[in-house]
Design a binder for these strands. Structure first.
Lengths: 200, 200
DNA sequence: ACAATGAATATTCAATAAAATATTCATTGT
DNA sequence: ACAATGAATATTTTATTGAATATTCATTGT
């Protein structure tokens, strides 16, 4: 059998996503046309629909990746097992804030896209929320195992933490204050939460 | 000197605000015209400008009143000195949430107005924020005085609390979950915060 | 002088049509 | 049969313009 060059479906999907990322990041979701993305992939616009249900579906995939990237960043912190849980919680919150803020400030086009997508696809936000919840539970569990934290209900506490740091995870709120101001508030919130978590 | 009937400037301002409230609440800020408000006050539209800089200025005054009403509600709770500080903090958070949610759900027109105004007049939001901060400081002080709470930095802690309950005070987030879901989260957040505040 | 107004002007809104774009589908090539 | 396309259709933006509304101002009445 001859070594077939033709790409597999998944490879093509990937190629489309890359082309779309490029365009969306540079010109924004709305200003990018299916025809342009198709041209970048040397195919017709119609053919895109063999790989994605529609434009929103392409955006949804990218938004997922974006949110997943954020979670991976946080996960990396959670997994720094040589550090104490309190410090890791602190860093998770500050890192989340920094990521949200810089995404909003430095990459407004990509941010616009994620917003547009999330408005139509609550399920994606919800999945992200679940992912973050699991990360928090993991961190809390570890903190308890090490005797650092005292936690009655892991899920409940993780929910409380996630809710309490909402202000640092909503791009819409970023224009309200400077990153410096947000950082101070994040420090204050972390301090308060740790007071409630520490074993004594 | 004859007993002058003609109203004072402040009375007329008040009359205008009342007429505007009525209209805004029933038909919304955008759908209400200056001419209509003027007619309700038996005066010409032009004359409104002797009392308010412009339409937004009228809205700003009402938005202020709206936010002040919320603060008064919370203040009433804070001042229930016969109850312990922890319970009052709990009620303040839950009451704030309930107010935000019901305002959003039951009075969308008034809410639309407050949003429109606040977008243009950040100073109003900022003043509200300062007012709430003072309420929290007052409550914390009282909690400390009673030996219920242990607080190192009152301002810092008040900021932390205010930030942690952001999710319950932003009308824009209300469509995300049901009031029931929000209530559970509020309970969780309060529990976590109180853990960090209580003296032991 | 002051309070108020009607008429003039500036701004915003809403309805429409034109153009651009998303999406579908019958057909083509392999 | 499958991958891909161009052309047809549906939907969404954009531009335009007339109408509605906000705002100003010269004038009127007190």
């Amino acid at each position: 059998m001859v070594n077939r060059k033709p790409s597999t479906g998944d490879e093509i999907r990937q190629r489309i996503l890359e082309a779309a990322t490029e365009r969306f990041a540079q010109f924004g979701y709305n200003k990018t046309t299916m025809a342009e993305v198709a041209r970048d992939c040397d195919m017709s616009a119609a053919n895109l629909y063999r790989y994605f249900h529609n434009k929103l579906d392409i955006g949804a995939n990218l938004a997922c990746d974006c949110l997943a990237a954020k979670r991976e960043l946080l996960q990396a912190i959670v997994h720094q097992n040589e550090r104490c849980a309190a410090e890791r919680l602190h860093d998770v919150v500050l890192q989340a804030l920094t990521y949200t803020y810089e995404q909003w400030a430095d990459n407004p086009r990509m941010n616009e896209m994620v917003n547009a997508i999330c408005k139509e696809r609550m399920d994606i936000v919800e999945e992200h929320r679940r992912g973050e919840h699991l990360l928090l539970v993991e961190l809390l569990e570890d903190g308890v195992a090490r005797g650092e934290f005292q936690v009655v209900d892991l899920d409940d506490t993780a929910t409380a933490i996630a809710t309490a740091i909402t202000a640092f995870n909503v791009p819409l709120l970023m224009p309200l204050y400077s990153l410096g101001t947000f950082r101070q508030r994040a420090e204050s919130v972390v301090k308060l939460m740790l007071n409630g978590l520490r074993k004594r």
